[in-house]
Amino acid sequence: MIAILLTLLAALALEIVPLPGAVEFARPEWMALVLIYWAMALPHRVGVVIAWLAGLLTDAATGSLLGLHALSLMLVVGIILLLHRRLRVLPLAQQAMLLVIFLSLDRLLSFWIRGAAGQPPELGVYLLPVATSIVVWPLIFLGLRHVRRRFDIR
């Protein structure tokens, strides 16, 4: 469990690591990817409550509205929990393709909340992280699987 929490903290750190200029807008959704992996691999360990708390910390760290990341991450993890048995056995490429849907959902939900709060960003730019997230997904998957096997987390 400690190893899982450490990976979540690492994801939180990656969320606020300074990136140069416009690259900032393409920052992969580290927290979402790590949560999705754990929810898929160990659904009895990482569920909606942990996703919600992790989202809340992300909100606090990035200075966004409290509840923005919490709500969207929690719902995505909820969907993953429903589908984890099917997702788990798919090859990496197919997983990544399905992730496009889940991550877009996550982004669209927070886009909608931002719009409701009176600060709608540009939708095209706002969906950019979905693309970069898909690119790093194999790394996250293989890396975290290694962590899971190495530390024998069940």
């Binding site: 919600w52 509840g67 923005l68 709500l71």
Partner: peptide, 10 residues
């Protein structure tokens, strides 16, 4: 419950 809580927070 968490959805309601999040909306409340927001």
């Amino acid at each position: 419950l968490l959805v309601l809580l999040s909306l409340g927070l927001l």
